[in-house]
């Protein structure tokens, strides 16, 4: 799943500084699951930006619409009347969603409301870990299902660097050593 985090109210406010009527577009797929750009997050950001603009004596009118998938033209096309009504669109989708909207609506500015981060999995509530950077050359078969390109801080492909302590990376104690994970896994994988 694509994981993203929301930009702050201040950042979004700055992006749409020169507009008085803006469309906030949520995405109902990955970024809804990672609590960054779904219908609720769009609503919350809407409250924040509206209040901040009101305090700055530059009130803004915000229309909100969350579609099933922003990376799919099938769903984007339904937005056309709403985009037409507004001066700009703010996309709460991943970077692919923002670019899909920009391509579909060439006459309107489209701004990103999220920072797209990586493809990852859910570890616990509101915590995702990075598992793939989308390099386009998948070597997971050779590495026992542990990606060294993503999960090793030094992207080492030919063995561990030797800097880990207690199976943790020397870059951060929160980060397990990818090569150690591979070694542990290979013990059971190669038993078959």
């Amino acid at each position: 799943m694509i994981v993203a985090s929301a930009k702050s109210v201040t950042e979004i406010k700055q992006l749409i500084d020169r507009h008085q009527k803006v469309l906030f577009v949520g995405c109902g797929t990955c970024v809804t699951v990672c609590l960054a750009g779904g219908e609720r997050e769009v609503g919350i950001a809407g409250y924040g930006v509206r209040m901040a603009r009101k305090l700055a004596k530059q009130p803004v009118e915000i229309e909100q619409n969350t579609i099933e998938r922003q990376c799919d033209n099938e769903f984007i096309k339904d937005l056309a009347p709403a985009v037409e009504r507004n001066q700009a669109a703010v996309s709460f989708g991943c970077a692919a969603g923002v670019q899909a909207l920009a391509e579909r609506f060439p006459g309107k500015p489209v701004y990103p409301a999220l920072d797209t981060q990586f493809m990852g999995i859910l570890e616990e509530q509101a915590t995702w870990t990075e598992k793939c950077i989308g390099c386009g050359e998948c070597m997971l078969a050779e590495f026992g299902g542990v990606c060294p390109v993503t999960r090793c801080a030094k992207h080492m492909l030919n063995g561990p660097c030797g800097g880990s302590t207690s199976e943790r990376c020397e870059v951060s104690a929160d980060k397990p050593c990818a090569w150690q994970s591979f070694a542990r896994r290979s013990e059971s994988v190669y038993a078959y």
């Binding site: 109210v9 209040m51 700055a56």
Partner: peptide
Amino acid sequence: DMLDEIGV
């Protein structure tokens, strides 16, 4: 944090 950022 958000209320602080907004200015409330």
